[in-house]
Design a binder for these strands. Structure first.
Length: 483
DNA sequence: ATGTAC
């Protein structure tokens, strides 16, 4: 149902327009089907789409993906691109968990080989990868200087110390290192929080999930990605931990002052921002790049301990497990990218918050191995259902600044989910569905119940039907480590 | 998401 609260106009079955009015500089465009649009209107996220459209220098549209929900200032599931001269950069448009993202690993193993071994696999992963709020590694505490090396070099830092191979780096967005990182702009407090958290999972929706390829929608492209039916896969979902949180928090304070200093009118203080070319804007981007690089290194370190855990739990060597990254995507980031605006190539600052880059075949930033098929897009669902691997398309490049959805998207707040889970054993319910779960805290499992999320299949069907991604395979979970 | 309110 459309709601006159937002004057929503239907464009087609999968796109809706919130027409520009008042102080809006551009239209809002929402990717959803009619049923989802109803869910989306249960929170304030469409008002946030409108608020984002007020910001100076916004280009074309304020975009919302089908997994949109309420977030800090900007909606989660939002995409907004800004002109380099007139536009702004905003920490709220990236999110607290800078470079929260997803890495997919393929293996040389098949589903039948893990029968009766899943318990050992999940227990070993749980023991080797610290999870939960404030989790840290007892076996790896870095010096401040070493953390600064991580912030400058990202996943490359991990590989240089033997945590993975150079080949791994070819299969990561930006090759695992965002340019322009300046560790001198990261506070001592943020670095302090990063000393012992590299190689840890964190809490909430973060997880390591072992699963298998349950459906193949496009055999040829799946083969290029190294995926085939019943092959074992591992999905890693985590970000920049306390360090990234602290960078965001530090710069929100800076940006509140900057917005006043540059006379930027804000419909919501949480949209605080600075011109991209201002000192504050440049400094945030340089600190954000540091946190993004920490997250890339984090997923690389976790990959190392996943490899080690599989070898130990299954008594096999690397030549049998053959664990290698398919790809690694950021879904909370601001980036400089070239896009076509009014027929001309233009450099923009693209904010993706709970949204994934989805570049087409032959784009210079699509990795060489995937040039013919498009950039892999990794979409985790909730713990009880499934995940998807998609690839980016020309239509995404043309219509959404090369962006698509990032996951299932919450429909229940954490508190609501906790109340719904009261009196139930979520671990037991998942076990009955054949999914083993180990979690640092029972409370997290309650917050993450499958019903708290939209059905990821419906989300993915919207982006596929709208043409901004192409579905390649579905993954189903076998065992999960949660925060 | 977050040493879930320095």
């Amino acid at each position: 149902m459309t709601d006159d609260k937002y004057k929503i106009q239907k464009i087609d079955d999968y796109r809706w327009r919130i027409p520009r009015e008042g102080k809006m500089r551009v239209d809002g465009i929402v990717y959803a089907d009619a049923h989802m649009l109803e869910d989306i209107q249960k929170d304030e996220s469409l008002q946030q789409v409108i608020n984002v459209s007020f910001l100076p220098g916004i280009i074309k549209h304020s975009l919302a993906m089908p997994d949109i929900h309420w977030g800090y200032g900007f909606p989660i599931g939002g995409v907004a691109a800004f002109d380099m001269d007139e536009g702004v950069v905003s920490p709220g448009g990236v999110g607290y968990d800078i470079n929260c993202g997803v890495r997919l690993l393929r293996t040389g193993l098949y589903r039948v080989e893990l029968v009766n071994k899943l318990e050992s696999v999940v227990n070993t992963l749980f023991a080797n990868i610290p999870s939960g709020v404030g989790s840290h590694r007892k076996d790896l505490k870095l010096s401040q200087q070493e953390v600064k090396n991580v912030l400058k070099n990202g996943a490359r830092w991990a590989v240089s110390l033997g945590y993975g191979t150079k080949e791994d780096l070819e299969h990561i967005e930006e090759k695992g290192c965002i340019a322009g990182a300046n560790p001198e702009l990261v506070s001592g407090r943020a670095i302090e929080r990063g000393l012992a958290q590299l190689g840890t999972l964190g809490s909430g929706n973060h997880f390591v999930e072992v699963g298998y390829v349950s459906e193949v929608y496009h055999v040829e492209i799946a083969r290029v990605l190294g995926l085939e039916k019943d092959g074992i896969t591992i999905v890693v979902h985590t970000g920049s931990r306390g360090l990234g949180y602290q960078v965001c928090d530090d710069f929100l304070r800076v940006m509140i002052n900057a917005a006043r200093k540059y006379s930027i009118e804000l419909p919501d203080r949480q949209l605080c921002c600075a011109p991209i070319n201002s000192q504050e804007g440049r400094e945030y981007l340089a600190a954000m790049a540091c946190a993004a690089n920490y997250a890339f290194a984090n997923r690389q370190m976790i990959t190392h301990w996943v490899r080690e855990s599989f070898e130990r739990a299954l008594h096999i060597g690397p030549k049998e497990s053959k664990i290698s990254p398919v790809y690694d995507v950021c879904h909370n980031i601001a980036k400089f990218e070239d896009h076509i605006v009014e027929g001309e190539k233009k450099r923009l600052c693209v904010h993706r918050k709970g949204a994934t880059r989805a570049f087409p075949p032959n784009h210079p930033d699509t990795p060489d191995a995937y040039k013919a098929v498009g950039q892999p897009v990794l979409i985790p669902g909730d713990m009880g259902r499934c995940s998807y691997v998609l690839v980016g398309t020309e239509k995404a490049y043309a219509d959404t600044f090369g962006s698509t959805c990032h996951g299932a998207g919450r429909v229940m707040s954490r508190g609501q989910a906790t109340r719904t889970a009261k009196g139930r054993s979520i671990a037991q319910e998942l076990k009955e569905k054949g999914i083993l779960v180990r979690a640092d805290s029972r409370a997290t499992l309650d917050e993450e119940i499958p019903e708290a999320y939209k059905n990821v299949t419906e989300v993915v069907d919207v982006v596929e039907h709208a043409g901004i991604s192409k579905k390649i395979v579905q993954l189903k979970p076998l065992c999960v480590v949660k925060g």
